[in-house]
């Protein structure tokens, strides 16, 4: 590159002007193609992380028990602990990690812009999203639970299907779809952040809210005026919460996917169970659905 510039500086003669112009054009083509070229020739995120010596992970800061902030302004939660495990297995030290606190609109751009190595932020896998970010296999099930105010005296999902009740939850089309399917007569109100949902329930702006099972359990344990409708997961089905990253980097994806698999099904299952019990109060799904006992 420098040699080309030097040549251009020295080339002063008329005859060489055409060559000069051709080289300038070539440089433009090279520069604009360089973006694509570097993407191909680029080292994997895995190498970048190893060289850097620490992981940069995008997380939520206000969705207990997955990721929230304790009295000392330290991030704690199930997802935080999982991230520490991955840092330990990759770099030898669980604290070689830097957390990037993101809100709902920031989680996809955090990895797409290259600022974070991956994100673990209570994100459910939906096919439309997979067109833009790369998900590993899920690190936990996302089952739906319905929180209700005790003073609504509601004990079933069908009872909520009434125009005098208001259903709320996180603002995404999947929740809107579920509401339309199961409680079409109820009014709906959607929020962008978890504390607004809490505020809505506490002030009566919402009678019920759709949340993840662990979130619902945690909120009920701390807010006595709320309760959970009896287990609806079988009726409403499971979804998957997964880590995601910028697509196109197979090496990095393979590493993270392997890490998640080892947590859920393999060598790290014991640790996974401990964390699961610590934050959710009960055992995780078994390692295998089949028994090899004869």
């Amino acid at each position: 590159m420098e040699q080309m510039v030097l040549y251009l500086k020295l080339a002063d003669h008329h005859e060489e002007r055409t060559v000069k112009r051709f080289l300038v054009a070539a440089m433009w083509v090279f520069a604009s193609g360089a973006g694509m070229a570097t993407a191909v020739a680029q080292e994997s995120r895995l190498d970048v992380v190893m060289q850097r010596g620490k992981l940069i992970v995008a997380v939520n800061d206000s969705s207990p028990p997955f990721a929230f902030v304790d009295k000392n302004n330290q991030l704690v939660g199930f997802e935080i602990d999982l991230a520490h495990t991955i840092a330990r297995d990759l770099l030898g030290d669980p604290n070689k990690i830097e957390f990037m606190r993101v809100q709902s609109e920031g989680r996809f751009p955090s990895v797409l812009s290259g600022k974070a190595d991956f994100a673990i932020a209570g994100t459910t896998v939906y096919t439309a999203r997979a067109a833009r970010v790369a998900f590993t296999r899920p690190y936990m099930d996302s089952g739906l639970a319905i929180l209700v105010r005790k003073d609504a005296h509601v004990t079933s999902l069908d009872a909520l299907n009434d125009p005098k009740f208001v259903m709320s939850g996180q603002n995404n089309p999947q929740n809107a779809e579920r509401a339309a399917r199961y409680v079409p007569k109820a009014k709906t109100v959607w929020f962008n952040s978890p504390d607004d949902i809490l505020l809505a329930l506490k002030t009566g702006r919402a009678t019920a809210a759709m949340t993840d099972v662990p979130v619902a359990d945690y909120l009920v344990s701390k807010n006595p005026e709320l309760t959970v409708l009896p287990d609806l997961v079988e009726k409403l089905g499971y979804s998957n919460n997964a880590i995601f990253m910028k697509p196109g980097d197979f090496t990095w994806w393979l590493f993270l996917d392997t890490a998640v698999n080892e947590l859920r099904n393999g060598s790290n299952y014991a640790e996974y169970s401990d964390l699961y019990r610590k934050w959710f109060g009960h055992n995780p799904p078994p390692q295998r659905f089949y028994s090899s006992a004869k």
Binding site: D61, V69, P194, L199
Partner: peptide, 23 residues
């Protein structure tokens, strides 16, 4: 600026609310 993760007053407030549930 909470959108870019700077721990100014509003963001800290949200974090505390989700920990203590006293909005």
């Amino acid at each position: 600026v909470s959108i870019i993760g700077l721990s100014e007053l509003t963001m800290v407030g949200h974090e505390i609310i989700e920990r203590t549930f006293k909005p």
